[in-house]
Computed example of a mutant assay.
Amino acid sequence: MHFDYYTTASVDFISLDEATFRSIIQHPDLTVTSEERVLNAILLWCMQAKELYGWEVVDELMIYSTPELHFGERLQLVNDLLPFVRFPLLPYALLKKLEKSNMSRKISIFDHLVKEAINYVESGLARPENEQNVRFQHRRSSFKELQYICDGDSNGVLYFAGTSYGEHQWVNPILAKVNVSLFSLS
């Protein structure tokens, strides 16, 4: 239920054993704001990262090196865990970036999954054989619906988003890369 928070607040999840991490990643009730978070968590866990970063940093590391160097003994787990990312649910623009990435050139399963997702999105149709495939189904979202009360409200929408649901000191949600969608029902 709190996957986003625990995989973006610290790297403590890196110390989870394989069975626990795998059961979280493949759990049917995994709640996330984006499949990109799942991708990042898998890459960080497999690299046994010492700090938090996204797939872009992993991709830069791959420019002059090999997956074996960065993933070491967990390289096979990269191949085993990447299929749990629901690539077809990623934004098309991101899929196109991933298609041109170093990871796509150097990790064959990654390349296959990204191309499959692009083909799925470009076809625009839910093919009958894919309807039962879990990789094409949306997960539960951790988005919260909040109401704006008044200007300066320290318990308002932006305050709530900027404190990760009141868990830490306020950080500008834009700087923390929190997606905030506001609309008015006037």
Score class of each variant (00 low, 15 high):
residue 57 V to Q: 14
residue 57 V to N: 12
residue 57 V to A: 11
residue 58 V to R: 11
residue 58 V to S: 08
residue 58 V to F: 14
residue 59 D to M: 11
residue 59 D to E: 10
residue 60 E to F: 07
residue 61 L to G: 00
residue 62 M to H: 05
residue 63 I to G: 01
residue 64 Y to Q: 08
residue 64 Y to E: 09
residue 65 S to F: 05
residue 66 T to I: 10
residue 67 P to C: 14
residue 69 L to T: 15
residue 73 E to H: 11
residue 74 R to W: 12
residue 75 L to E: 12
residue 75 L to Q: 11
residue 75 L to D: 10
residue 76 Q to G: 15
residue 76 Q to C: 12
residue 77 L to T: 05
residue 80 D to E: 14
residue 80 D to T: 12
residue 81 L to W: 05
residue 83 P to L: 11
residue 85 V to W: 09
residue 87 F to K: 08
residue 88 P to F: 14
residue 88 P to V: 15
residue 89 L to R: 06
residue 90 L to N: 14
residue 92 Y to R: 11
residue 93 A to P: 07
residue 94 L to R: 10
residue 97 K to Y: 06
residue 97 K to I: 02
residue 97 K to A: 02
residue 97 K to M: 05
residue 97 K to P: 01
residue 98 L to V: 02
residue 99 E to P: 00
residue 100 K to T: 00
residue 100 K to D: 01
residue 100 K to R: 02
residue 101 S to H: 03
residue 101 S to I: 03
residue 101 S to G: 03
residue 102 N to E: 04
residue 103 M to D: 06
residue 104 S to E: 00
residue 104 S to M: 01
residue 105 R to G: 00
residue 105 R to M: 01
residue 105 R to P: 00
residue 106 K to C: 08
residue 106 K to F: 04
residue 107 I to P: 04
residue 108 S to K: 15
residue 108 S to Q: 15
residue 109 I to L: 05
residue 110 F to H: 01
residue 110 F to P: 00
residue 110 F to Q: 01
residue 111 D to K: 04
residue 111 D to I: 00
residue 111 D to T: 02
residue 112 H to N: 05
residue 112 H to L: 09
residue 113 L to F: 02
residue 113 L to S: 02
residue 113 L to E: 04
residue 114 V to F: 06
residue 115 K to P: 00
residue 115 K to S: 03
residue 115 K to D: 00
residue 116 E to A: 15
residue 116 E to K: 15
residue 117 A to L: 12
residue 118 I to G: 04
residue 118 I to H: 04
residue 118 I to S: 04
residue 118 I to W: 10
residue 119 N to F: 13
residue 120 Y to T: 00
residue 120 Y to P: 00
residue 121 V to H: 06
residue 121 V to S: 09
residue 121 V to R: 10
residue 122 E to N: 07
residue 122 E to A: 07
residue 123 S to I: 01
residue 124 G to Q: 04
residue 124 G to H: 07
residue 125 L to K: 13
residue 126 A to H: 15
residue 127 R to P: 00
residue 128 P to D: 05
residue 130 N to M: 02
residue 131 E to V: 03
residue 131 E to Q: 03
residue 132 Q to I: 09
residue 132 Q to G: 06
residue 134 V to D: 06
residue 134 V to Q: 06
residue 135 R to C: 07
residue 135 R to G: 07
residue 137 Q to L: 14
residue 138 H to W: 08
residue 138 H to P: 08
residue 138 H to G: 07
residue 138 H to D: 12
residue 138 H to R: 13
residue 139 R to M: 05
residue 141 S to C: 13
residue 141 S to D: 11
residue 141 S to P: 09
residue 142 S to M: 14
residue 142 S to I: 15
residue 143 F to W: 12
residue 143 F to I: 13
residue 144 K to V: 11
residue 145 E to Y: 13
residue 146 L to G: 14
residue 146 L to K: 14
residue 147 Q to H: 06
residue 148 Y to D: 02
residue 148 Y to Q: 03
residue 148 Y to I: 02
residue 149 I to F: 00
residue 150 C to Q: 08
residue 151 D to E: 14
residue 152 G to C: 04
residue 152 G to D: 04
residue 152 G to T: 08
residue 152 G to Y: 01
residue 153 D to P: 02
residue 153 D to T: 01
residue 154 S to P: 14
residue 155 N to Y: 01
residue 155 N to M: 02
residue 155 N to L: 02
residue 156 G to S: 04
residue 158 L to D: 07
residue 158 L to G: 04
residue 158 L to P: 07
residue 158 L to N: 07
residue 158 L to W: 10
residue 160 F to T: 10
residue 160 F to M: 08
residue 165 Y to M: 13
residue 165 Y to I: 07
residue 166 G to R: 03
residue 167 E to C: 10
